[in-house]
């Protein structure tokens, strides 16, 4: 029987970078459990020896010649960012100085 507890839901929310309310996290315990029960039908199948399909059509690496082509306008791309200055996107500090 599939099931998922509140600790696991919190862990998955952290992995998914979703800061959810306690109420939503608790709601997700039931919702995700119901979904996992729904997909249990395929978990029970014997698929030993069956290869996985990642992609519906057979494709090998697609290559092109290494030549410079048109690309997006930098200023237009930066204009869409929430914060940008001096030709760069601004984000909160990732590294801090040692105390």
């Amino acid at each position: 029987m599939a099931g998922i507890g509140i600790d696991e839901v919190r862990h998955v929310a952290r992995l998914a970078r979703l800061e959810l309310s306690d109420e939503e996290l608790h709601g997700l315990v039931g919702e995700l459990t119901a979904l996992l029960e729904h997909v249990d039908a395929i978990r029970q199948l014997d698929t030993s020896g069956v290869p996985a399909t990642a992609h519906a059509i057979p494709l090998s690496n697609v290559l092109r010649d290494d030549v410079v082509g048109p690309c997006l306008e930098r200023d237009e791309v930066l204009a869409a960012a929430p914060a940008a200055e001096e030709g760069r996107i601004v984000v909160p500090a990732i590294l801090r100085e040692e105390p």
């Binding site: 998914a16 970078r17 979703l18 869409a80 929430p82 914060a83 996107i89 984000v91 909160p92 990732i94």
Partner: peptide, 20 residues
């Protein structure tokens, strides 16, 4: 980071998680 909504946070991970 690159487009759309941003909700600020004390660090990058909190900003990501609040935005999403």
């Amino acid at each position: 980071v690159r487009y759309g909504l941003r909700v600020e946070g004390p660090d990058v991970e909190a900003m990501n998680a609040r935005t999403r």
